[in-house]
């Protein structure tokens, strides 16, 4: 499934033009992106939560050379699936 498939479904359901359907879908994802970019979590009930986590710097090693390196502090994005999603993925099969 790609964005185009989602746009198609919106188009079929709403009967607006393809172009407009595309714009709304685009806008939904870009708002989610902007929010995460600002460091704010996005919670979608029934689907899951997108969580921005701060990681401290730590020492690591290059597994190939054994060389010690410093892994810098960073901010990462994780996804925590909702109970509902997990349940749905394991009942129909």
């Amino acid at each position: 499934m790609t964005k185009a498939d989602i746009v198609q479904q919106v188009y079929e359901k709403l009967g607006t033009s393809k172009k407009e359907s595309g714009q709304v879908v685009e806008s939904v994802f870009s708002i989610v992106k902007e929010t995460l970019e600002n460091g704010e979590n996005v919670k979608v009930s029934g689907f899951g939560n997108f969580i921005v986590r701060n990681k401290n710097s730590r020492k690591g090693r290059n597994p190939q050379t054994g060389e010690k390196i410093e892994i810098s502090a960073r901010r990462v994005l994780t996804f925590k699936p909702s109970q509902v999603l997990k349940r749905n993925m394991n009942t129909s099969t």
Partner: peptide
């Protein structure tokens, strides 16, 4: 309707 549709169709795809 649109936002629900987007996430529901993604959930359905994963269920498949």
């Amino acid at each position: 309707i649109i936002v629900d549709l987007i996430f529901n169709s993604m959930a359905a795809a994963l269920a498949e």
